[in-house]
Design a protein around this nucleic acid. Structure first.
Length: 502
RNA sequence: GGCCCGUUCGUCUAGGGGUUAGGACAGGAGAUUUUCAUUCUUCAAACACGGGUUCGAUUCCCGUACGGGCUACCA
């Protein structure tokens, strides 16, 4: 590639960024980094009515958490094309629209909302295009003086693109190949709204041109309007600098049909957002991957593989490796259903590969919040013990709290299953045995088994009892490891405590 | 409805004119483990359908079905 690659992620801050949008951002990031290009965050806030408080900051936070920070754009430092918020670029768009009018590729339209609705009501398929625009109130049907007067008065008007009738518009999509749409299927889209704001189409094309964007990588929902954008480049005289297009397949619901939507997350008990989001109007809270205990690296890896695959059988890749491997050619064409089980697997894999110390530092806050101050050394050892059993980071506090807190009371039903130990075990003898344990787990295991035989206790029964004492349930890490971690005194204390409760 | 895009195991996917169609997740079985998890072994599981083209099609072409998207002064 001769010119410098520049891509952009251009969300509109109308709510929390969902996982599909995040993947779009990720692909843009990977592509940019692969070619040592620029990755830009541009906020498309041209619809003032749909703006949601906090949404822009939320987008920024998501990108930061995932580790795919733009090197230019809103809140990531100015490049040469500031500002990066379209509302702040408002004044720049009119000139381009006016130029199109002058060149005969656009026109003023004065139809009121009511009038447009009326025509829609008369014919639901009504279009505003080459065939029908003569029936509307616009600078093509009105005479010059009327138009001048209307423009001078404070009448509301929009600028619409003037499409030629029955013209095939062809463009090349990097993922799908050539796509052709006939203008008879499109209509004279509004370019500049009556409030002076550009629509997506105009703003998008102008900014991509001005910001020297080389590749437009966006969701497939934009595919049908891409021909319109191509025409805008052509009519503006920018066709030679038109970016390449790549329309990404959509992320679909895990079950049933349809595009993954914001509601799916909590309905299915899994997040569709990276970060927890509280709706500023309803105060409704939607869960996030971060809060659920996902590692950003795992989410990134998982997301990268949803619709893309480098070939081969390896699935765990670092961000750097993904950057290295990423190519648009390997992006799949069909939509991908989101699979939460696979997401869990990725997370568990990443946790397993974490260094004990790193894991400890990641869970420290959660642990201390629930169980009070914990010795770092101890936390590291606890982490090593449960690392390969964790799916989520906070499993350590929800499922392995006994590593940090003495079980106070044991469940009746569980005690019932070990109660036979009461008559056959001489507690003091066993406590004494614990005192003889050294720092080796086979040695501990052997001693326990030996003790069982000499005291005519089934080894399994003894183990079960010890396990319940230490943990409060029938599953968990190996008993010798547990004893070594908790310490002989704590272990003895728990065993005595449990024995007393039987 | 119209237009555009798509369709390989349940899911994510590899592959591509001649393959026992490969991997992963989930599922089944087994081994290891005092337990659970991990780990290991193993099993089951797919080219939507119908026509072409071809010696040969899952792969190329056309149609059908199905799925998705778009069809706003929303992005």
């Amino acid at each position: 590639m001769s010119e410098k690659v520049r891509v952009r992620f251009a969300p509109s801050p109308t709510g929390p960024l969902h996982i599909g949008g995040v993947r779009t951002a990720l692909y843009n990031y990977l592509f940019a980094k692969k070619y040592n290009g620029d990755f830009i965050l541009r906020v498309e806030d041209t619809d003032q009515n749909r703006m949601v408080e906090g949404a822009e900051q939320y987008i920024v936070d998501c990108l930061k958490w995932l580790g795919i920070e733009p090197n230019e754009g809103v809140s990531f430092g100015d490049g040469s094309y500031t500002p990066y918020r379209q509302s702040e670029r408002k004044n720049s768009y009119r000139q381009y629209a006016e130029k199109l009018v002058e060149a005969g590729h656009a026109y003023y339209a004065f139809d009121s909302e009511a009038e447009l609705e009326q025509s829609k009501a008369a014919n639901p398929n009504a279009k505003y295009d080459a065939e029908t625009r003569e029936h509307f109130k616009n600078s093509l049907t009105l005479n010059k003086d009327e138009v001048t007067d209307l423009l001078k008065s404070d009448a509301h008007y929009v600028i619409r693109i003037k499409l030629r009738a029955n013209e095939d518009v062809k463009f090349y999509d990097e993922i799908r190949g050539w796509v052709t749409v006939n203008t008879s299927q499109m209509d004279d889209k509004v370019l500049l709204k009556s409030d002076g704001m550009p629509t997506y189409h105009l703003a998008n094309v102008c900014d991509d041109y001005v910001m020297k964007i080389t590749h437009v990588i966006r969701g497939e929902e934009w595919l049908p309007s891409a021909p319109l954008h191509v025409l805008l480049y052509r009519y503006s005289g920018w066709e030679n600098e038109m970016p390449k297009f790549a329309h990404l397949p959509l992320l679909l619901k895990p079950e049933g049909n349809g595009k993954l939507s914001k509601r799916d997350g909590d309905r299915l008990g899994f997040p569709v957002f990276l970060l927890e989001w509280t709706d500023p109007k309803t105060n409704e809270v939607s869960s996030g991957y971060k809060e659920k205990g996902y590692l950003p690296e795992a989410v990134l890896n998982m997301l990268a593989f949803l619709g893309w695959n480098p070939g081969g059988t390896q699935e765990i890749f670092s961000k750097e490796e993904l950057v290295d491997l990423f190519t648009i050619e390997h992006i799949h064409k069909a939509g991908a259903k989101f699979d939460f089980e696979k997401a869990k697997w990725f997370n568990a894999e990443y946790i397993k590969r974490l260094d004990d110390k790193v894991l400890a530092s990641l869970v420290k806050e959660d642990v201390e919040e629930k169980f009070g101050t914990v010795d770092t050394q101890y936390l590291c050892r606890a982490c090593r013990l449960v690392k390969e059993r964790l799916i989520f980071l906070n499993d350590i506090t929800s499922a392995y709290g006994y590593l940090f807190k003495t079980p106070a009371e044991y469940e009746e039903a569980i005690l019932f299953k070990v109660k036979n130990i009461k008559e056959i075990l001489i507690l003091d003898d066993f406590i004494q045995l614990i005192g003889t344990f050294y720092e080796k787990d086979e040695e501990i295991e052997n001693k326990i088994k030996e003790f069982a035989t000499t005291n005519a206790i089934k080894a399994g029964d003894l183990m079960k009892f010890i396990r319940v004492s230490l943990v409060g349930e029938f599953s968990g890490p190996a008993i010798p490891d547990l004893i070594l971690l908790l310490g002989k005194e704590e272990a003895a204390k728990r065993i005595r405590n449990c024995y007393d409760q039987i």
